[in-house]
Amino acid sequence: MTHLIEITGLSVRQGGVLALSDVDFHIDRGEIVTVVGPNGSGKSTLMKTIIGALKPVAGRIERAKGLRVGYVPQQLHIDPTLPMTVARFLGLPKRVSRGAIEAALHKAGLHGLAARQMAGLSGGQFQRVLLARALLDDPDLLILDEATQGLDQPGSAAFYRQIEEVRSELGCAVLMVSHELHVVMAASDRVICLNGHVCCHGTPEIVASAPEYRALFGTGTGGALALYRHDHDHSHEGCDHDHAHDHHDHPNEAAE
């Protein structure tokens, strides 16, 4: 099998409702695939099924041998009664070395946060710590389930640029769910539009112009997509295409 993950005829029930029916899906090494769809379209259900949190009622999920998955959850609420440093959080459930922690934080664009309390982080920093944790295992596939929920526009744009950087550095595939169509679609190799089943899929341009997609999201997004792609050729917020060194400051900017 050449695919990292291949799903055929998948149906999943959640809360007594058939959330996904007859979904075919695959992702290859190094690819960025984005799943879009309206609320309740089964996007998170698909992610949870892939990580094994939900059992399908029908269909097959084939994973490449020895596949390592890094998972960034939709939202993580840490109860205020639970003290947790960044370093300790990264060492769950497996203890990892100091060096591995620093390296993962660095890849996620963070520095010197290891001793901080999770509760004291800004939204952007918190998401990057989650990303760092997902990167610890040197994954073949990174799964992000609406990882930028709660971040503002520049914050989430910076986060997605970090993801692209991680992908080019580690060569891992990225599978993500997002609401922010214009940002995400510009960064994706393939887009899958989900609404209980796969409505349409293909390159961002193909999906954006597909009638099924327009029926769900209207034509406005197509315009936004064009606008963003145009923007993307220019430099952002004073840092130009030589991203690698400037990005580390973004979480702090996003926090303000």
């Binding site: 949870k48 949190a53 639970l82």
Partner: peptide, 8 residues
């Protein structure tokens, strides 16, 4: 912390 994180 999170059931999905545990599953993963």
């Amino acid at each position: 912390l999170n059931p999905d994180l545990a599953h993963a």
